[in-house]
Design a binder for these strands. Structure first.
Lengths: 152, 152
DNA sequence: CTCCACGAGTTGTAGCTACAACAATTAGGG
DNA sequence: CCCTAATTGTTGTAGCTACAACTCGTGGAG
């Protein structure tokens, strides 16, 4: 009789198909690309994302930003603090107590303008790295997650 | 005469198409899913990825792990330190001086076994969240990045 | 044989991320 | 009117991530 077929070990299964590992590597690679391009203007990929969001949809409350970008409120709180210290945004008290209103500043707008060509270069390199259809694939997966709302 | 067509602002362009922002949100959502499932066994998604890698390809040098997983060596150094403190891996001196050999321990193997059902549940939830074709899309993008090797 | 360039790994510093616990405030129910 | 529940934002703690600068060791050019 033939020996029983070897079943793949759990570790092999994880290494060979884990979506979290793949998503994480993707994130390291892509974000690294943008961070490298943007370093010369002193902004990170995450900061530019938030700043553009505030530029387009602001003035806006932190909670609203957190929900839309699916970032933990505490994470955003500290990220906004850094951006305020840089002078890119203003944090004002909202009408209702204990709420805030985030707005982009003149310096924030200037930063976006300065960052744009470098962002474009990174975006082009990212498309290259993701390959034929890879960029669309990321967009598709992103849209699906956004459509299904929160992940919990 | 018709007014000149309004050109989209740089911020709108970034908000509407930035691959880094999308990749980052994807990573937050997917990794969060696994971290939540795995919390009960005291391991993170990143740790389980590394541990499975060491299980399959170890004993292996840190540098080799870092290159393959595209993680900065200093990042990996500290992550391995935590995993060693948990007793999941051993860190031995290599034959050539100033090199190391990472191996999985009995406790590391036990951890993988304990984590497997939870990993499977997270993997299923991730497929759901990524939607029809979304999981394949992530895999495709991942493969493209891996094929093109380093991102710099 | 000496020196130095390279590769390997660590440490200082800093940003992004999340969970738990907390304070502040508002809105609703009794 | 008061008290509680929900919402909003902060702080403590901790893990993941990267860059810069460093140490340690090896191997090759002179």
């Amino acid at each position: 009789m033939a020996p029983p077929p070897p079943q793949p070990s759990p570790a092999a299964e994880i290494m060979g198909s884990c979506l979290a590992g793949r998503t994480r590597l993707l994130n390291r690679a892509i974000t690294g690309l943008y961070d490298e391009s943007l370093r010369a203007v002193g902004v990170t990929a995450a900061q530019l994302t938030t700043l553009s969001f505030v530029h387009e949809l602001g003035p806006i409350a932190p909670g609203e930003i957190a929900r839309t970008l699916m970032i933990e409120k505490s994470t955003l709180s500290r990220n906004l603090g850094r951006m305020e210290r840089h002078g890119w945004i203003s944090i004002a008290q909202g009408e209702a107590g204990h709420t805030q209103v985030i707005a982009i500043t003149r310096r924030g707008r200037a930063l976006i303008a300065r960052a744009l060509p470098r962002w474009e270069r990174a975006q082009a390199r990212a498309r290259e790295l993701l390959g034929e259809g890879g960029a669309d694939a990321v967009i598709e997966a992103f849209n699906s997650v956004r459509a299904r709302g929160a992940y919990r």
